[in-house]
Amino acid sequence: MDRDLHAARDLAAELAVRAGRLQLDRRSTLKMGAPKAHANDVVSDVDIASEELIVDAIHAAWPDDAMQAEEGHGRAGSSGWSWVIDPLDGTRNYVSRTGPWSVCVALYEGDEAQVAVVHEPVAGETFSAVDGGGAFLNGERLPVPAGATLDKALVGVSFQPNPATKERAARVVRELLPVSGDIRRLPAALNLVYQAAGRLDGGFCLDTNLWDIAAGALIAREAGVVLGGHGPEFTTELTIGAAPALWDDLAARIRAIGIDHT
């Protein structure tokens, strides 16, 4: 089935901006729900309202598409296309007012990402990509990131905050922090798009869900960031990204730490 990918990108961007505006408007009146998988896996009524806004509009435009959505509004489809939605990536930052968050929307045909949007509401930045068409920030094409040697590199760190994953992530940080320029902990989507924009030289995401990384990974790849995991393909268990000049060193060091599940 043919699909106008640029129209899909434009709708995803419009919806992400609308959800971001809702999040800014309702931040002072949000209500927290019960934690999900663990005590640090928090959700608010704003997460849910944002997801409903995005899912309902996409369903109206393409009713036969499937959806994977973090807060439970997913649905089956028959078109062969599926949307992967994280309505608020970085809820802990959003709720505590301690850091950035984003709205993430990706469109897949089968197993291949075709469209991606990551919107950061506070900065008013919308990162986007269509497969094979490059990566963009607010409509301006992003150049291939130059990167830096590891001793000068700024490295992004993202991980699920459950006890087992925190222990595995700590092993990576213990190894990287002394030999890198510095590290920054960020939600996974922003980790990846900041690599695309050259703000980070590289990074890793550990034990994510597909909706955490689907949009950011396509944008990073389209900008020229090299992606992988324990092998040549990145996975939700481990996504490593880096500018081409840094990739070999950073990937080798992270893989050598031995952080795969035991």
Rank of each mutant, 00 (worst) to 15 (best):
A7H: 05
A8D: 10
R9M: 12
A13Y: 03
L15A: 06
R18G: 00
R18H: 08
A19Y: 05
G20C: 10
G20Y: 10
D25E: 15
R27T: 03
S28I: 07
L30M: 15
P35W: 03
N40F: 06
D47F: 06
E52A: 14
I54P: 04
V55H: 08
H59S: 14
H59N: 10
A60M: 05
P63Q: 07
Q68F: 05
G77I: 00
S79D: 11
D89S: 09
G90T: 02
G90R: 11
T91Y: 12
T91A: 05
T91G: 11
N93T: 05
S96R: 15
T98R: 15
T98F: 03
W101G: 00
W101R: 01
S102F: 05
S102N: 02
V103C: 10
V105E: 05
A106W: 01
E109Q: 13
G110D: 08
D111N: 12
D111T: 13
D111G: 04
E112F: 04
A113L: 02
Q114P: 01
H119V: 00
A123L: 15
G124A: 09
E125N: 15
F127H: 14
S128M: 08
G132C: 07
G134Y: 02
G134F: 01
A135C: 06
A135L: 05
A135S: 12
G139D: 08
E140R: 14
R141H: 04
L142H: 08
P143D: 10
P145M: 12
A148M: 13
L150N: 10
D151T: 11
K152I: 00
K152V: 00
V155F: 04
V155K: 07
Q160Y: 14
Q160I: 01
N162H: 12
P163W: 00
T165K: 02
T165C: 09
T165G: 02
K166N: 09
A170P: 00
V173N: 00
R174Y: 05
L176C: 07
V179A: 08
V179I: 15
R185V: 15
L192V: 02
G198Y: 09
L200E: 09
G202Y: 08
G203P: 11
C205A: 14
T208W: 04
L210W: 06
W211T: 13
W211H: 13
I213V: 15
L218C: 04
A223F: 09
G224K: 06
V225H: 04
L227G: 04
L227H: 06
G228C: 13
G229L: 09
G229E: 07
P232L: 12
T236D: 13
L238R: 03
L238T: 08
T239Y: 00
I240H: 09
A243G: 10
L246A: 08
L246M: 09
D249R: 11
D249S: 12
L250T: 06
A252E: 15
R253K: 14
R253G: 07
A256Q: 08
I257M: 06
H261P: 00
